[in-house]
Simulated assay, not measured.
Amino acid sequence: MSLADGRYACTCPDFANRGAQLGLCKHTELVRLRREALKQSKAGGASGPSAPTPPTPNGRTDRAPEAPAAPPQATQDPGEVVVHWGKHKGKTLSDLAREAPGFIAWLAFKMEARSDEDRRLQEAARKVHERLKLKAEKGEKKARGQSRSADPVAGFIAAAGIELLKEIWRAQGNGRDIEDPAIQKALELRLQAIRRVAELLRKI
């Protein structure tokens, strides 16, 4: 090990691998600490000379314990992730869950992630999609409860609603956008048919 022009050099493998960039290794660090302790001992001071840091049995100098790592930041709610491209750029996934749930399904299962940002968006979309699925399942259970009612109209509407909900989710699972005009037209026709049948049942 040597010292020239204020820079340390050492022949150990650690210095050869990374010490040349950092300017230190365990040997140079030990020598530096001992030199500083010797200077402080000679200079003295109001509180007396500082004792050199004792080396450990393996030759290394004890260091002060590292400060505890900062606690990890709270994970961002997946619904607050913002789409960074396309026609929905600038919208959060929560917005799209209300406006275009089919696009959420496409992001979750059909999108080709080409960057880290894309991958984060896709992971968040899958979580939001799972939330939508659970919400739909809860609605289905509620509708089934209503279908057991003695009211035949309520039972019919609940059963028809369940079937329509299943079809919507199948379309979304296949990556189709329910905002598509053709799908919107088909849904409207189904709803009109359900209303007509419900009106007939009320007249019976």
Results as ranks from 00 to 15, higher is better:
139 G>I: 02
130 E>A: 15
134 L>T: 08
129 H>D: 10
138 K>M: 13
141 K>Q: 12
138 K>W: 04
123 E>A: 15
135 K>L: 10
135 K>V: 12
121 L>A: 07
143 A>M: 10
143 A>H: 01
124 A>K: 09
137 E>W: 05
116 D>C: 02
148 R>A: 10
140 E>C: 00
130 E>N: 09
131 R>T: 08
133 K>N: 06
147 S>D: 00
128 V>N: 06
134 L>Y: 03
117 E>A: 14
140 E>Y: 00
134 L>M: 08
118 D>E: 01
142 K>V: 00
141 K>L: 09
124 A>I: 14
122 Q>R: 09
117 E>Q: 11
141 K>R: 12
119 R>L: 15
142 K>D: 06
140 E>L: 03
135 K>Q: 14
137 E>R: 13
128 V>A: 04
121 L>Y: 04
138 K>Y: 10
139 G>K: 07
133 K>I: 01
122 Q>I: 03
123 E>T: 13
116 D>H: 07
125 A>K: 08
143 A>P: 01
133 K>F: 11
127 K>G: 07
134 L>D: 07
140 E>T: 02
139 G>F: 06
137 E>H: 04
146 Q>T: 12
136 A>N: 11
130 E>L: 11
125 A>T: 12
120 R>W: 09
140 E>A: 01
148 R>L: 10
143 A>S: 08
146 Q>R: 09
131 R>G: 12
124 A>Q: 09
135 K>M: 11
146 Q>K: 12
